[in-house]
């Protein structure tokens, strides 16, 4: 319950944070919302020598419209994302998934950037970020670079963020007018996702014209269900057609096995939940 000792710095800018990270070396750890990191510290599963708190960097918070994108600062809280009108209008799927994360108290503190950088495959925000082709803006000593979600998630707890780099912003293309739904399945209300499906669907005249589907906890990273997406396009938004397409949900997955769900059950769930998510998204 009591973390190991560490030093604490609270930079006021991204540049200062990057410098602190360079100074801190391998043992430095970034503190965003802290809703995963602080429990890990309490259990002494990690013992960093220095904590770099991004909470003092105002520029990392906030949601803005930037041309054909919605740009979300990495330190924007779940709470703020769920309530944001731009998110509701243009990236509704992200808000829907965010609303299912943990509980109210955690959503007040937890941040989008923290969740994506933590990259727990059971985390709920990777699948929508992947499905919606989010762009991750990463700052380092030599400036910023942008990485697409497809390249961002490398392995469990591992992302494209390099040593000495910080995730600063997440940019979502607009999905204005799309239907969306996040279908989450867990053991108890506050448990992590056993399996979940993020779906955004564009329906034109009863026919699915575009589809984005991401899976949570079906591999070591969030997984894009491209087979399902391909199978959906051109199909009527009917239960039979959607369920048939959802049968492809396990393509490219590597479902983990644990006490809540062995792989075969997860695979089954992925198909069922995909059908439900897409149907709900299609309205």
């Amino acid at each position: 319950m009591i973390p190991s000792k560490f030093d604490y710095v609270k930079p006021a800018s991204v540049a200062e944070a990057v410098q602190a990270l360079a100074d801190g070396g391998d043992d430095a750890k970034i503190l965003a919302g802290g809703q995963s990191l602080i429990p890990v510290l309490r259990l002494r599963l990690a013992a960093p020598s220095v904590i770099i708190d991004l909470g003092g960097i105002a520029e990392l918070r906030g949601i803005r419209e930037d041309g054909d994108h919605i740009a979300i600062g990495a330190m924007t809280s779940y709470h703020d994302i769920v309530r944001d009108d731009l998110v509701k209008q243009h990236v509704a799927l992200l808000g829907q998934a965010t609303e299912t994360v943990a509980d109210n108290q955690v959503r007040h503190r937890g941040t989008l950037g923290g969740s994506l950088a933590h990259a727990d495959p059971a985390g709920d925000l990777g699948a929508p970020a992947l499905a919606l082709d989010a762009q991750m803006v990463i700052a380092g000593a030599s400036g910023t670079r942008t990485v697409g979600a497809a390249e961002f998630f490398v392995d469990y707890f591992t992302t494209a963020i390099g040593d000495g780099e910080i995730l600063t912003e997440i940019r979502f293309p607009k999905y204005t007018g799309w239907g969306s739904h996040y279908e989450k399945f867990n053991r108890t209300a506050q448990a992590w996702s056993m399996c979940a499906v993020a779906a955004a669907i564009k329906v034109d005249g009863g026919t699915i014209s575009e589809a984005r589907v991401g899976l949570t906890n079906m591999g070591t990273t969030p997984i894009r269900a491209t087979g399902v997406e391909q199978a959906l396009v051109g199909q009527p938004a009917t239960a039979d057609a959607v369920r048939a397409a959802a049968e492809r949900a396990t393509e490219g997955t590597a479902a983990p096995s644990d006490a809540d769900a062995a792989a075969d059950y997860r695979e089954h769930l992925a198909k069922v939940l995909t059908g439900r998510a897409v149907l709900a998204a299609a309205g």
């Binding site: 990191l37 599963l45 990690a46 059971a122 469990y156 707890f157 995730l167 992590w192 644990d258 006490a259």
Partner: peptide
Amino acid sequence: IDTHSPGAGLGSIDPNNPQGEVQ
């Protein structure tokens, strides 16, 4: 019976890799 698979939430933090990217 073992719950310590990659995707089981907090309990999933790999004790052998506690320095994984955590924010």
